[in-house]
Amino acid sequence: MSSLFTYTLRIADSSLILGQRMSEWCSNGPTLEEDIAMSNISLDMFGQANGFYQYAAQLDGTKSADELAFRRNEREFFNHQLVEQENGNFGTTMVRNFLHDVFNFLFYTELSKSKDETLSALASKSLKEVKYHLRHSSNWLIRLGGGTEESNTKVQDALEELWMYTGELFEMDNLDTELLNNGIAVDNSALKLEWDIMVNKTLVKAKLTRPEEVYMATGGKKGLHTECLGFILSEMQFLQRAYPDAKW
C-alpha cells in the first residue's frame, strides 16, 4: 500500500463517516429548514468522500471506490474519532461539526497548495463547501450559546464531552511526515495555532468557555476507534456484506 493511497483514504474516511452521521438527522431536525440544511452538509461530505475514494481507487488499482467504502472493517478505517461520535442532541452535533469544520477549513486551505494535483483540486473544491459548513455551525454555536440558559448548558456540556477528540486532528505520524517532505501532505501540527485562535473567537461570541486541557484520545490513523464506529459500519455496509455477489 502506498503512502499516498493511505493518506487519501484517511481524508475520505473522515468525510464519509461525518456524512453518514449527518444523514442520520434526515427527518429528525429541529425545524424543516434545518433538516434540509443538514442533508445538504451530508451530501457535501459524501461528495467529498466520493472524490477522495475515487482517487484512492485509482492509486490502488484493484478496488473500486465503493469497495473501499463498504468492504473494509473497523480496523481498516482511518477517520478521526471526532467524526464518528454520536449525534447526541442538536447542540452536540453542532459542536462536533464546528470543531471539525474549523480544522477542515485550515486543512483544505493548505492541501489546496499540495504538489499532488489531484489532492490539490479535490481540496479546493472541498474548501468552498467547508467554508459554508463552518458558517453554519459557527452561527448555531453563537445562537445556542447565547440563547437560553438551557441551550447554553447543553452546548457547553457537548464541548466538554467532545474536547478530548480534538487533539488527534493535529497529530503527525511517519507517513504524514514523509509526504510533507515531498510537498504533498499538510503539516497538521502547524494548524493548531490558527485553530485555537478561530475556535476561541467563536467561543467568546457564543458565550461558551473553552474546556481545560484534558487527556487527548488518539488512534484513528492506526485504525483504532471508539465503539461507535463498529455500529456505523455494520449499518452502512449491511447490503454489500449480506449480498457479496450483488451489484447495486
Binding site: N28, T31, G91, L144, G147, T148, E150, S151
Partner: peptide
C-alpha cells in the same frame, strides 16, 4: 423530532 427540537427553536428565538 418536533419535541426534541423545541429547545433549539426556543434558543434561536431567545437569541
Amino acid at each position: 423530532a418536533y419535541d426534541q427540537g423545541k429547545w433549539v427553536r426556543d434558543a434561536a428565538k431567545a437569541y
